[in-house]
Amino acid sequence: MTAVLTSLLCLGLSLGQRLQAQAGIVPRPTIWAEPGSTVMRGRTVTIWCQGSLEAMEYHLHKEGTPEIWDKQQPLEPSSKAKFCIQQMTVDYAGRYRCSYVSNTGMSALSYPLDLVLTGVYDSPTLSALPSTGVTSGGSVMLQCGSSLQFDRFTLCREGDQQCSWTLDSKQASRGLVQAVFSVGPVTPSHTWTFRCYGHFNSHPHVWSSPSDALQLLVSGEEFLAFHRKGLGSAKGMGTGSLGLQRQAPRVQKRMVRHPAGLRDIAGKAMFFTCLLSSYLRTVQESPSVDQQDPICLLE
């Protein structure tokens, strides 16, 4: 079913592009970078431009450069071209757009792609206020600071295609500069690992090395229930529900015989010890293992 839907979608896109070409409309291309638009110094990155099946040549434009930065033929039989940067340096950092030429004419420029070079300056520090522990649904303040007089700080979350938070720096004590980001609401269903960077207004696409990673520890009833060993397995995880299930344990009766009636202190101690043992087994043991939960009886 998925393959059929994908084929229909591709057919629809191809037909739409051909109808636009027949009407004299050249579709705007799309631009992106792989493995991402934030690139460590010396690493390899590829810029992709995807336009129409009618495209004959693709052009890459870099902001601040009057001439076309690069030209590439479309890859057959696809409707895109790639521009490879073998070793990322300051010269390649900047804002890019792409376009293409077809029989209908020149396309409009794509929306911009900001290609950022990292690893040029020393790493800032990143900390959580007051701590990395956060209640599910709550917020936390993340402080990024440095002794270098950066104009701005950018906060990035692991797994995101682009960094979402950028703030101007402010003077702190002892000649430090910092920025404090408010992050939230946080939920256990996402990864909350962050790094931050510092950079200057004069070179906005040239950043520092990343800070050490900081991971938030999200707590809450659902989060604890999901991670607590022995309370169940999550199936059909959806919004607001973890679908916890528990297998029925096997039961083994354990008789605690009262040696001298209910008033016998030693007998009572054995009885309550048995109850405590049963409770600890219920909480700690995994449901995937056959459990032997005792039933404590007084006789």
Score class of each variant (00 low, 15 high):
D212A: 15
L167E: 12
D293S: 08
A128T: 01
P294Q: 14
S37R: 11
A23H: 00
V256A: 06
Q252V: 01
L53G: 11
E299T: 15
T2K: 08
T154R: 09
L155I: 00
G238L: 06
W165Q: 12
F194S: 11
S146G: 02
L276Y: 04
K80E: 14
F226V: 14
R28E: 01
K229C: 07
S286T: 14
A269R: 04
G159P: 13
S189F: 11
T132C: 07
S146H: 03
L53F: 15
D151Q: 00
S136I: 08
S277D: 06
F150Q: 02
P130L: 05
L129G: 05
S139K: 15
T44H: 12
W192S: 01
Y100T: 02
Q215Y: 14
G94H: 08
T44I: 04
S288N: 12
R43D: 15
L262F: 11
A108T: 07
P77C: 11
D91K: 10
C196P: 05
D212E: 08
Y58G: 08
G261M: 00
V120Q: 13
S99V: 15
L115R: 03
S202W: 13
H59G: 15
L244R: 08
C84S: 06
L5W: 12
P74F: 00
F272T: 02
F272V: 05
G243K: 03
C144I: 02
T166V: 06
V39Y: 06
G51N: 05
Q252H: 10
V218Q: 06
G184N: 10
V26D: 04
P29G: 01
F153I: 11
P130D: 14
R257Y: 02
L276A: 07
L15R: 07
A33P: 03
L126M: 02
L224W: 06
V256W: 10
S7A: 12
S107M: 02
S14D: 07
P124K: 06
Y197K: 02
I68N: 05
S219E: 05
L117Q: 14
A3P: 03
H61G: 13
K62W: 13
T38I: 04
S219N: 04
V116A: 00
Q86C: 03
S107R: 00
G175M: 05
D70E: 04
T193K: 03
L262V: 10
S139T: 03
A225Y: 10
N103D: 09
M255E: 07
R174K: 13
L242Y: 12
Q247P: 11
R246T: 12
G261I: 00
K253T: 07
V45E: 06
P249V: 02
T44C: 03
S37T: 03
T125S: 04
I295W: 01
D293C: 15
S278L: 04
T135C: 12
K268L: 13
L276H: 15
E63P: 13
C144Y: 04
K235E: 13
W48D: 12
F226S: 13
R228V: 11
Y58N: 03
S131W: 00
S110W: 00
W165K: 11
S78W: 07
L275V: 11
Y100L: 03
S288H: 11
H203C: 14
Q22D: 12
S110K: 00
S99D: 04
T273V: 10
R41I: 09
A172G: 13
C10T: 07
Q161W: 03
G238R: 09
G64T: 14
P210E: 07
G220A: 02
K235D: 07
D160R: 14
I265S: 15
